[in-house]
Design a protein around this nucleic acid. Structure first.
Lengths: 320, 320
DNA sequence: CTTCATTATGCTCGTATTGAGTATAATAGA
DNA sequence: TCTATTATACTCAATACGAGCATAATGAAG
């Protein structure tokens, strides 16, 4: 086995003609206002904030924060890395582009509501919003299109495989709709060429694709990655609070979760869940902004461990 | 709001003096043999396989596969991305090094048992193996060292914060040991300078640090990331099977899971869990390699969706 | 050839968690 | 004053989960 230590190899590489790459940072910045999950966009709402990773940046995260704040004037709260991918630059001298994507959560200010490129993420993924029932686009367009794509394969194995993947991702089987599969669903639509990005028609000036508003390059895929990650994460880490104002009612919290999940939750059980997890405490105030009795206001309990709820069982452990 | 489209920006950057970076791929390759979880290492078992991302590589994944197979002669099965981080190169001309790490699962061959750099990951993290009870190093060395570190802080807030973090990560509180927190534990030890990497003593020729065998640069941290990820993942995705031979007994499967989790599981309940999930099917054969009655052999049911078990509830959804 | 430790496997049982719904009271708007 | 709407407390059944008992089959030890 031929082995060079990393140290040795790095030195060699540095002096030789080392292949260098460009590094970009891309941000999926999410906020929730008026019961809508919104993503921060630039340009004609067709791109995510992004920029090159520069020497001045102390770290990837700080580089990202700098870029987002410069481009949008918006500070970022919680940040987590999403995914890194590489693309040979199609147009240029065989240079490789590496993109490192991040998910950021922000408390959107009232002031910059729709003005500054905050768009509901359901503009891009209309089939993902099941709060008012199954969206019409699913039975009308998306599912028939996908099933047709599955059928058009010549190889029966591929047909079967495609069919099963569609059924699973879109909940056509017994398991039902699973909101966490947002990325798989987008990827199926891409494979089936039902989204504009996959058809090269978008640069002909049609920003509204067959299914949902599109974005440049692979930005919509990155957004889908962020949505899926967030939908998964709210279930085992108290990240929702990064999106909430300092004080809130349980119904507001519920509406935020519902906006993210794209589904309605059972109110009584939601409250039971929140309270038994000991994540919030009453502020003492009550508000009555709507009908019904006044609601108590709560705040997030800053109990050092935002680590909490890292439960995760599913292995039948034994004590011995 | 100043906005340039990504397209425009990229062109500008390419012609101008664009800051370029070096990109490395680093692999955490895991296999389980003889009931031990093993990681593929190179050099003096102090480094993970790694290499530069090159132009010839079609994608990051294929680049990684190429490197690992060339360095070790070992094919990779399952692969998933772990994390990307950047370090200014300490020694050189302000160049930035980007490292993209991957987790890979392999079925280790019998032939290259210990010879080819397969090391038990508990060599590096002896405090993580709780299969034979709490390892002595925890009460003897690790915990006292960490508590002392917590106490030595002058600011009482920092003292309290450190204390709580140690209690949480090492299960000193009521929640008990949580095997998924492997990374947090390593990071605490690093912060407390209880691992060699943090003390700069390792390059003085001492490969055995205060707590566990060390590695160059941040490789041990990357390994901890991989371990934590795998320990989390086995609970909701059937990735264990990537580590198993084509046919196996339920006890072998259990031993593999236990090796990864570093904990023993309840045998009867483990079988119930596996069977109700419908992940395996009998091959029809039985074997009696040990005492006791012959055990049935099983194989993984290749039911298209290795996607399965993407359950994940924890939100009280409602039907309406 | 017995004995015994070890393993496979089936079954029970109490408790916690989860999904779903009923019930009651408080309030704003019509 | 009515009524739709909301907050909040409870109940109830269905599972899921942790823990353990029981039985049978086998290899190793004597």
């Amino acid at each position: 086995m031929e082995v060079k230590s990393t140290q040795a190899r790095r030195s060699a590489g540095r002096n030789g003609q080392r292949h260098v790459v460009d590094a970009d940072l891309i941000a999926v910045v999410i906020a929730v206002t008026d019961g809508e999950p919104r993503v921060l966009t630039i340009g004609e709402a067709q791109a995510l904030p992004s920029g090159p990773f520069e020497l001045g940046h102390r770290s990837l995260q700080s580089g990202l924060r700098a870029w987002v704040e410069r481009q949008t004037g918006h500070p970022l709260g919680y940040i987590e890395q999403l995914y890194t991918f590489a693309d040979r630059d199609r147009t240029a001298d065989e240079r490789v582009q590496i993109s490192i994507s991040y998910l950021g959560l922000a408390r959107e200010e009232q002031s910059d509501r729709s003005a500054h490129g905050w768009r509901s993420w359901y503009d891009y993924f209309p089939w993902e919003d099941h709060r008012a029932g199954v969206p019409a686009i699913l039975p009308d367009t998306v599912v028939p299109g996908l099933l047709a794509w599955a059928e058009e394969a010549e190889d029966p194995n591929i047909r079967r495989d495609r069919g099963l993947r569609v059924e699973f991702a879109f909940g056509l089987d017994d398991r039902g709709w699973n909101e966490e599969l947002a990325l798989q669903r987008y990827e199926l639509l891409y494979e089936a060429a039902l989204v504009a990005e996959a058809t090269r028609s978008w640069d002909k000036g049609n920003p509204l694709s067959i299914a949902g508003r599109s974005m440049i390059a692979d930005h919509r895929r990155i957004l889908a990655t962020g949505i899926a990650r967030l939908r998964t994460k709210i279930k085992y880490r108290p990240v929702v609070f990064e999106l909430m104002p300092p004080a809130f009612t349980l119904l507001q919290l519920q509406r935020t979760v519902e906006a993210l999940a794209g589904r309605l939750v059972h109110k009584q059980n939601f409250r039971r869940l929140i309270e038994q997890q000991d994540l919030v405490e009453e502020t003492g105030e009550t508000v009555s902004e709507t009908r019904g009795p006044p609601a108590k206001r709560f705040r997030f309990r800053q109990t050092v461990q935002a680590e909490r709820t890292v439960a995760g069982t599913k292995l039948p452990l034994s004590r011995a």
